[in-house]
Amino acid sequence: MKHLIALLLLCTSAQADVVTPTRTLRPGTLITAADLTVKAGLQDGMFDRVSDVAGQEARIALYAGRPIPFEGIGPPAVINRNQIVPMQFDAGGLTIRTEGRALERGGIGDRVRIMNLSSRATLFGFVQPDGSIKVTQ
């Protein structure tokens, strides 16, 4: 009877697919569908569809055969560290545009630190699709 119960429990446990890389991917690597495979697994916090991962960028080292965690990938970087980027600040009808130096890499929608080239002040802003930074503080 114990064996029958154990067999029933094994059969009723939910099997989920997890996406794994076919090769080790270094941080900053653009991930393609050819770099991915799907394996059966039981892990939460991991991707289960190749379409969710393909086209993204590895944020951490992703090892072949290991599931890809949600925080392990992100949108491809639009700006690189030390790149000169246009910045814009909008508040109450006032718009200020200038240039700044990106202090870190960032993809569309990422919050990054930038340095105003005129004042040398460090600011924060969000990366826009055109590669500019919308300053928030």
Rank of each mutant, 00 (worst) to 15 (best):
P69Y: 07
I5Y: 10
T29P: 05
Q56P: 01
T24Q: 08
A34F: 08
L42Q: 14
Q56D: 02
E57F: 01
D48W: 05
R66I: 07
P75D: 02
A54R: 10
A34Y: 10
G100P: 06
Y63N: 06
G106D: 04
L42K: 13
K39Q: 09
G106Y: 01
I60W: 05
R26A: 15
E104G: 10
T29V: 07
A102H: 04
L36G: 04
Q56S: 04
I31C: 03
P21V: 13
G109H: 05
F47W: 15
N82W: 12
L94P: 06
P75T: 01
T20H: 04
G109Y: 03
V38E: 05
I96G: 12
E104M: 12
L103D: 06
L103M: 14
M87P: 09
V18R: 06
G65R: 00
E104A: 10
R26K: 15
G92E: 12
A64H: 09
T12L: 12
R81V: 08
T32H: 10
D35C: 04
A6H: 11
V19A: 04
A14S: 14
L36D: 03
D17T: 09
Q15G: 15
P76V: 02
R26L: 15
P27H: 05
L103K: 07
T37A: 15
R23S: 14
N80I: 09
G41H: 01
I5D: 09
L10W: 11
A102Y: 03
A16T: 09
I5F: 13
A91Q: 09
G74I: 00
E104V: 07
G74A: 01
L30R: 03
P27L: 05
V53N: 01
A58T: 02
G93K: 14
G107L: 00
A54K: 12
G74K: 00
I68C: 00
F89T: 11
E99P: 04
G72S: 04
Q43H: 08
R26I: 14
Q56E: 02
L36A: 06
A16P: 05
N82C: 07
R101T: 10
T24C: 09
I60S: 10
R23M: 12
G100D: 07
I79C: 00
G92A: 14
L30P: 01
V50Y: 08
P75E: 02
V38Q: 06
A54F: 12
G65A: 01
L8R: 13
V53Q: 02
L7W: 06
D52Q: 14
L30C: 01
Q15A: 15
P76M: 03
V78M: 13
D52P: 11
A40N: 12
R49W: 06
P67N: 01
R49L: 08
E57S: 04
V53L: 02
I68G: 00
I84Y: 11
A54E: 13
G93P: 08
L36P: 03
L7H: 07
L30T: 03
I31S: 02
L36T: 04
A91V: 09
Q83L: 03
L25M: 02
G107T: 00
Q15S: 15
I96R: 15
